[in-house]
Design a protein around this nucleic acid. Structure first.
Lengths: 236, 236
DNA sequence: CGGGCAGTTTGCGATAGCGCAAAAAAGCAC
DNA sequence: GTGCTTTTTTGCGCTATCGCAAACTGCCCG
């Protein structure tokens, strides 16, 4: 088990309010594990035995229906926690987590949680905020799915990804991990065909440049306009 | 400010782990307020100054888009908390709460929260579980909106309402508060017209009996079948 | 270097559900 | 009871989006 440099994680929201000199005490209980691209970290329905903090890479959390359809719950960016089943009182993971890129993850056993939050109450408070924020994001997503058309939802999804995991380029923003049309469809509640058509359209207008599991927003500002325009509005 | 009988709330999930004899100390900080039907309790975007526990009645939490469209986030049943903006670190209420029935609500000032959770850590843990459960429900809702057709989503919504706030009848279950077609549309991401058509259809098959803001599930079991059947399946 | 596979594009017909409009019904106020 | 408001019902055309099928492309593997 490699030792993790406290200075690398001290600034994370999870540890805000924890004194840097105490951080080692928290990290000591975790182990660091590397997952290669496409490796499963945990499966939906499995006993929740650990909780996680992503250090490097990107992780996709997805939920599967009994009939096998999937939705992407979210993409986890470095510095974010995931698999918090223990904290929210779930005995099993409600989703599947998989590394979409080579990733490094800190893993705590659930058994460490009660002790940690007793010793560092800020951890509990920070986690509460995180979960609360995710709840609000979920509600926003439901609102969008209820009131917007597919093109707007795709625009929003890409903008969020760009915001969370965008790599700035000379001209545009590239989403910094492999993501397919299918993935975007599963984030927005549509089909990969429809996503492909939309991106093709945007590409021919120069708004994006994209290829196999790769998307660059060339005109983020114009995509913002797309995302916000009302169902009928605009294109005369 | 009327005194609240501790025995009435002692069994609520919120207070699990709090000793009954300590409960009075928690309740002392709250005031009890009655809201008549259709009264607003708080508005989306307003400064979050309090958090709430519903004692009697029913409350509708709804989110509004900039363009005025609404979705119902959830219906609050007696014994449930709502308006937890403080706990999740939000400065403003992310939704509007309104009494759909004459309701009685316990109200704590946000300023009491830090003290309460310090004194009774179980409150924080219970709230975390509650928020976590709501997050999971949100994800389930997103999954349904992504993968199911409207009729199935309406079936699921009604079954949940029946489960949460159903009054058992000789033959069937009645949803125990006024709810319109529009409300159901806003819970399922469709239009009141479509909901009306669906309920009309069900009514003619004897599955439900409904009227103005009133729905009785006459054949809950058959509605379960509807909710679960695959898009194509069944009706020959 | 030649498959072969996973991911993408595109055409085309089908349709679920929307949106508008108008009428019917159910409460409620006076 | 009468009139008014709110909610519900229903008809009808429209279209955004799906679903299937097929072709295309860039890549990884051997």
């Amino acid at each position: 088990m490699a030792k993790v440099d406290t200075s690398l994680v001290a600034h994370l929201p999870l540890f805000s309010g924890v004194k840097p000199e105490d951080l080692d005490e928290v990290l000591r209980e975790a182990r660091s594990v590397r997952y290669p691209r496409n490796a499963a970290i945990f499966e939906q329905g499995a006993d929740a035995q650990s909780f996680f903090l992503l250090l490097h890479g990107h992780v996709r959390a997805a939920k599967t229906t009994p009939t096998g359809e999937q939705i992407v719950v979210r993409y986890v960016a470095p510095g974010e926690t995931f698999g918090l089943a223990m904290a929210i009182g779930a005995a099993h993971y409600p989703a599947t987590a998989m590394a979409v890129d080579d990733s490094v993850v800190l893993i705590w056993p659930n058994s460490a949680w009660p002790r940690l939050i007793e010793r560092f109450p800020a951890l509990a408070a920070n986690t509460m905020q995180t979960v609360g924020k995710r709840l609000q994001e979920s509600h926003t997503r439901i609102l969008e799915m209820s009131t917007q058309q597919v093109e707007q939802r795709v625009a929003h999804a890409l903008l969020r990804l760009a915001n969370q995991s965008g790599k700035k380029l000379d001209h545009g923003i590239e989403i910094d991990f492999p993501i397919s049309r299918q993935d975007i469809a599963q984030m927005t509640g549509t089909t990969l065909h429809t996503v492909s058509r939309i991106l093709s359209g945007w590409e021919s207008q120069g708004l994006v440049e994209s290829g196999r599991q790769r998307i660059i927003l060339r005109e983020p500002h114009k995509i913002v306009v797309l995302a916000e325009r009302s169902p009928d509005g605009g294109a005369a």
